[in-house]
Simulated assay, not measured.
Amino acid sequence: MRILLVEDDAALRLGVARGLEREGWQVDVLSDGEQAMSGGLQGGFDLCILDLGLPRRDGMEVLRHWRAQGLKAAVLLLTARDELSDRVRGLDAGADDYLVKPFDLPELLARVRALKRRADGRVEEVLRLGPLTLDLAHKELRHGEARVALSPREWALTEVLMQKAGKVVTKESIVSRMSTWEADFSENSVEVYIHRLRKHFAPLGVAIRTVRGFGYVLELQESGGDAGAAATS
């Protein structure tokens, strides 16, 4: 997938670009709205990540121009404007999703993956494992009808595990997916967050099993088994 990133903050632009490239995507970068007016229409992009607060031309103006000129690529807005009216204006102008600054890189990557699934025609936005339901569109984890509260990093790790439920997810792939532009997500951090998720999931009948030397498997607890043993075996 080829992505255009339009962001005037150099540090943020570099960090986001590196995170996207770690996912295996090709990334082109621009730093102001004037460049983006024409640049977004010339590259054959699959997705555009567009900051609203750009110099020279406002991101909203860029977005309207793109859509008026027939741009079909999905557009994810980055905005420091947390007012509902601004978000509505962006969606009405043709954006497919938005993310309010400051944000964690894993959340941005999750939204990019969701937009890619839609573009690929895979519109299923709900992952299920037994009593757990992960709604990717609304960012909710539910156990039956009850909502399970997770931090942004816990959410990102849950998405990684549920996408491959029943299969081994390597520690290296988790580190890659969870790292931010500020710091790498270390293997020790993986263990910390796995431990936190086990505490969330054990009462819900779901275990995270360690496959030593390989990684982790998210699976249903065996009927009648001990929750603690299932989570740490």
Rank of each mutant, 00 (worst) to 15 (best):
A114F: 09
V168F: 00
F103D: 10
R147M: 06
R147D: 08
P203Y: 04
I208W: 00
T180L: 03
A114G: 09
A202E: 15
F103C: 07
D184S: 10
G166I: 00
L197M: 05
E172S: 14
A110M: 11
R153Q: 10
S176G: 01
W181P: 15
R177D: 13
K101P: 15
A119T: 04
L115K: 04
L197S: 03
L204Y: 05
L204A: 02
D104H: 14
R117V: 04
G130F: 03
N188H: 08
E107Q: 09
V217D: 02
G213Q: 11
E145H: 00
G121I: 03
E125P: 02
L150Y: 03
V206K: 01
E159G: 04
K167D: 14
P152M: 01
D104R: 12
D120S: 11
K101V: 11
P131C: 05
G130P: 05
W181R: 13
F103L: 06
R209Y: 09
L197C: 02
D184P: 08
I194E: 02
V206Y: 02
F201H: 04
L115V: 04
E107M: 10
L136V: 03
L127Y: 09
F185C: 06
R128M: 11
R153P: 00
Y216P: 10
R117L: 09
Y216C: 07
P152G: 03
S189T: 10
H143V: 07
L204V: 01
A183S: 14
K199T: 13
A110W: 10
L136M: 11
E219Y: 01
E140A: 12
E219H: 10
A165Y: 03
G166M: 03
N188L: 11
H138A: 07
L129M: 04
L141C: 11
R198D: 08
E187W: 00
H138N: 14
L105V: 04
G121P: 12
H143M: 03
S186W: 05
L105Q: 13
L115T: 06
N188E: 15
L108I: 06
I208M: 01
A207H: 09
V190T: 03
